[in-house]
Every structure is written in structure tokens, then in C-alpha cells.
């Protein structure tokens, strides 16, 4: 799978309250959540972001709450993928479970500038910066997570498991 898009940059320790503030969590409707995505990190972001864009962030992206609303809001806003130096663990889990592609690459997070056009080869974990003409390697996805992705997320994987039992 290849993912190509324009990037938006964010700093370190972007928490889930910044990704989707709790004041909007009285709903779990993806469309409504998407209207407020990243609002407390950048109030203009929900207006600026376009379907197909990619978020690039520093370390510990998604720290804080376990709210799955965070990756759901990102996905529903049409953001195709998140690249970061590292991810907080519940966000990491949630992203795989719901099928939001995420990539860990300190080099990419440092080198990519806001607005750069990048292409991610998801299978090989290779990130190409088309604007700067550079390539970066993302950390390989563990085999079990790969299996989750191939099944279409945790729900589909669990369905298969129940059927097999």
C-alpha cells in the first residue's frame, strides 16, 4: 500500500486532549469528532486540513487518555497516516485496532517540513520526501500487528477467531 499526501507538523507530547478535547466526547460520531480534530493544538486545523493529508509529529504522539475518539477523529478528518518519532502506547494500540496507519521514524519526524509532499510505502516502511528528495526508514511493524492490519483491524480478526473456535 502506498500513501501519498501533504504534511502538517506538530511538536512533542501531543496529548489526546489536544487531538480531541473531552468537551466534545459526549458523542462518538466520527463526523462530529472530525470537526474538532487537533483543535487544542491548533484551533485553525479543522478548517485547514484536507482529506489525504498526513500528520508528522515529534515524540510521544497521543499521550494521555485511552479515548479511541482520538484516532477516530484523525481518520474521519480524512488524514491518511501519522508519522511520529514515537507514539504513546494506548494510541499506538488504538490506531492499529481501528486501521489508522501510523509510522515511527525519528529521522522522518526531524527532516520533514510542514507542507512537504511525502509518499509512504507501508509494506516496506519506506518514507519518501518528494519535496526534499530524501528517503527515511520507519520501524518495522511487528508480525502480529501486520496480521491485524491484513485482517482489517481487531474486529475482523476477532470475528475470524470466533469462527475458528
Amino acid at each position: 500500500m502506498k500513501i501519498r499526501g501533504k504534511t502538517w507538523k506538530f511538536g512533542a507530547d501531543i496529548d489526546t486532549d489536544a487531538i480531541i478535547p473531552a468537551r466534545y466526547l459526549n458523542t462518538s460520531d466520527p463526523k462530529e469528532l472530525a470537526l474538532h480534530v487537533m483543535e487544542d493544538a491548533d484551533p485553525e486545523f479543522p478548517k485547514k486540513v484536507r482529506p489525504g493529508d498526513i500528520i508528522v509529529a515529534d515524540k510521544n504522539f497521543g499521550c494521555g487518555s485511552s479515548r479511541e475518539h482520538a484516532p477516530i477523529a484523525i481518520k474521519a478528518a480524512g488524514i491518511q497516516a501519522v508519522v511520529a518519532k514515537s507514539f504513546a502506547r494506548i494510541f499506538f494500540r488504538n490506531a492499529f485496532n481501528i486501521g489508522l496507519p501510523i509510522f515511527e521514524s525519528p529521522e522522518a519526524a526531524d527532516r520533514i517540513g510542514e507542507g512537504d509532499e511525502i509518499e509512504i510505502d507501508a509494506d516496506r516502511g519506506v518514507i519518501t520526501n518528494l519535496t526534499k528528495n530524501e528517503q527515511y526508514q520507519a520501524k518495522p511493524i511487528p508480525p502480529f500487528m501486520q496480521e491485524l492490519i491484513e485482517s482489517g483491524g481487531l474486529v475482523e480478526w476477532t470475528k475470524k477467531k470466533i469462527r475458528a473456535a
Binding site: 479511541e68 494506548i90 488504538n94 481487531l154 480478526w157
Partner: peptide, 13 residues
């Protein structure tokens, strides 16, 4: 702590 989908799977299995 886990996400809601993890809880859904655990509720089933």
C-alpha cells in the same frame, strides 16, 4: 488502559 475496540474484543472472547 486499552481502547474501546480492545474492550469489545475482550467482551466477546
Amino acid at each position: 488502559g486499552v481502547g474501546s475496540t480492545d474492550v469489545a474484543a475482550a467482551m466477546a472472547t
